[in-house]
Write a protein that binds this DNA or RNA. Structure first.
Lengths: 227, 227
DNA sequence: ATTTTCTTTTAAAGTTTCTGTAAAGTTATA
DNA sequence: TATAACTTTACAGAAACTTTAAAAGAAAAT
């Protein structure tokens, strides 16, 4: 618990940033600021913070868009802190991968408690923008997958599927879990999609697609990637 | 693939329970109700729901107390739904192990989205330990069993059986108990299944399957794993 | 000690469920 | 409109589960 946790704040209001800075640093966090969406994306990638607090009303790019782009590779907690109070915004943000949604004005004690909750449930998630496995590498940030030196030509669904497998290598992922992560919660029964895309992915990453060595079937449960 | 998620509602207000019932069952959940804290604790234990929605203002026991007692064993999501709006209540509940805190009156779309969030993160992070015995290890979280370094290729039934044995190593487990745990209540008389699967498991984990050293027969009673 | 009875092991056949694959149909995208 | 990506269908083959049956082993009775 001695390493300093870094929190990235993406918000254009200086007062909010100051208030957060005081609250968070008083609680042992190291704080980084970004004043717009673009900076936020860059700072997240360069500092790899252990948590991000994101405002939705940014001057350049919409916060929901930032959230989506972050979630392409960033697996640690993201807490939305916004004046927007519409149910639609909240649902969209949560389904886009936010861990929590707090409306301004906020209470700092509650914010800290919600940060603790978010960190509690994401401790396992290691977060590397580039994951490697064998001669495969997946660069979440630049959205590029390689086999050796050769760049794999993957569709976005295939890429999402491969990232999920690489991020969770060695773990058995259930059909439902994969479907929810890649396609969304409404698709958990569409096991057939998964079969089709697993077959396509195997064609592109396995030496011998009919005798898979990387993407292993766990019959009746799901799939496991790698060792 | 058609298994229904069960949600337990612990709330004394009938209107709230009705509203939740409608919202949740319309979204494919199976709903159980408890009207007081005592019933809540019992129902949680008997039904083992996949999520609990808990009110703080219960007639008998205080909700924070229920929360603490549930968290002694219940690892899946608990969402607090309460009229209490004080920061102290919120912080206490979140630190007592609640996954989220929603104040009444609530918006059902937001509630559903927050349920999705809670389920998303609890599935990954079931902090169940890795059980080991000799050179065997069973990793419940990743659903992987190993003998030394080699990954054992087990069917899901074999895996469930082995987990049960490893978790209860040294204890004599009766046929009925094992059948109930692995196959379910309706199978307690199917001793033959057990014999067949024990034989299969021995082939995969014993040095000499016909002279088992790990998975010992207790004639007329059941089996014992390890010493 | 031997026989009888009950229990367990094991193989193998029968049945069901799950998975891989190709190909056709549909939708999105440039 | 042409192209790529995604969705859906259909079916064969594989894997898992259930059932049967015979042989081996243990316990009880004589």
């Amino acid at each position: 618990m001695n390493e300093i946790d870094t929190i990235l704040i993406v918000d254009d209001e200086i007062q909010i940033r100051r208030l957060l800075e005081i609250t968070l640093s008083a609680n042992g966090f190291n704080v980084i600021h970004s004043m717009c969406g673009k900076d936020g994306l860059v700072d997240a990638a360069t500092h790899n913070p252990s948590l991000i607090i994101l405002d939705l009303g940014l001057p350049d790019i919409d916060g929901q868009e930032i959230l989506k782009r972050l979630r392409e590779w960033y697996t640690r907690p993201i807490i939305i802190l916004s004046v927007r109070n519409s149910e639609e915004d909240i649902i969209t943000a949560l389904d886009n991968g936010a861990n929590d949604y707090i409306t301004k004005p906020f209470r700092s004690g509650e914010l800290l408690a919600r940060i603790r909750v978010a960190k509690r449930y994401s401790e396992i998630n290691q977060n590397e923008p580039i994951c490697e496995f064998g001669n495969l590498s997946v660069d979440m940030l630049n959205h590029v997958a390689r086999k050796g030196d050769e760049i794999l030509k993957l569709t976005s669904t295939e890429f999402a599927l491969l990232s999920l497998f690489v991020k969770n290598s060695g773990r058995v992922l259930t059909h439902k879990f994969i479907l929810r992560q890649v396609w969304g919660f409404g698709y958990v029964e569409q096991t057939q999609y998964l079969r089709v895309f697993v077959a396509q992915l195997r064609k592109k990453i396995e030496k011998n697609p009919s005798k898979p060595e990387l993407l292993i079937t766990e019959s009746g449960i799901g799939y496991r990637f790698g060792e």
